[in-house]
Amino acid sequence: MEPESLQGRLRSKILEMNFKAKSGHIGSALSCLDIMLSVLPDRAEGDTFILSKGHATSALYAVLNALGEIPDEVIDSFYKNGSVLTGHPAPLKFPSIPFATGSLGHGFPIGNGIALADKIKGSTAMTCVLMSDGETNEGTTWEAAHFAVANKLDNLLVIIDKNRWQGFGSIGEVLGDTAAPQLWAALGFEVNEVDGHDIAAIRTLKNELRQRKNGIPKVLIANTVKGKGVDFMEDTLDWHYLSMNDGHYEKAVASVQTNYKSSQP
């Protein structure tokens, strides 16, 4: 199955999971689904992916479900009592979820440690950390960025899901753009920007960056649309939080079907 055809199917899955769970963070999951679809199925031996923006975990679960790592019956337990699928990833449950996240600003320092360990061991593995743009407000981002540069972690790729919305406003309204390319360039990162919904482009860029052993850590600023694929959820703060009623769900599914026709049988 071509990855592109997955984009609609997994969006429908994310909607179904969150509708049944009456849960929120839907816009965040739809925002970074395509980034995960670019990275997760395309890992080489030893590569690590860390979802630092843990609130988008329904997208991660959906991708791992499609990859066969999380069975359907487990997916059905999302948010339920006695489940391992919490609203932010739980620790020590799945090999592809090496770290429980949910409090922002944890994934990048962890990624530093994995990348440094791989360097010491002479491994060619790549560590990829997916952050949100709001998350880059966290002070650990700046501690971790200096560490990555000082330790020449060219095997580390930070991907920022830049949908321009954070907890209670747009990134411009809150602290300013802490995911601005010039900030990261000034820190000493190799900065690339990409359309965060273009799977082929992200994957190509990622694989180019992996080959660039120049002693410089990489950041990929993925410009995205919050709520991507569901017209009424796109580019709004509301769908960071809201959960769907029956009407929302019906409308959302129809919107995905229209926007991703290739996913229809």
Partner: peptide, 17 residues
């Protein structure tokens, strides 16, 4: 460096390896 939060998170990453 003078960056204890990164130090501990980083240590967790190395321990994971």
């Amino acid at each position: 460096g003078v960056a204890e939060q990164n130090m501990i998170g980083m240590a967790a990453g190395m321990a994971y390896r």
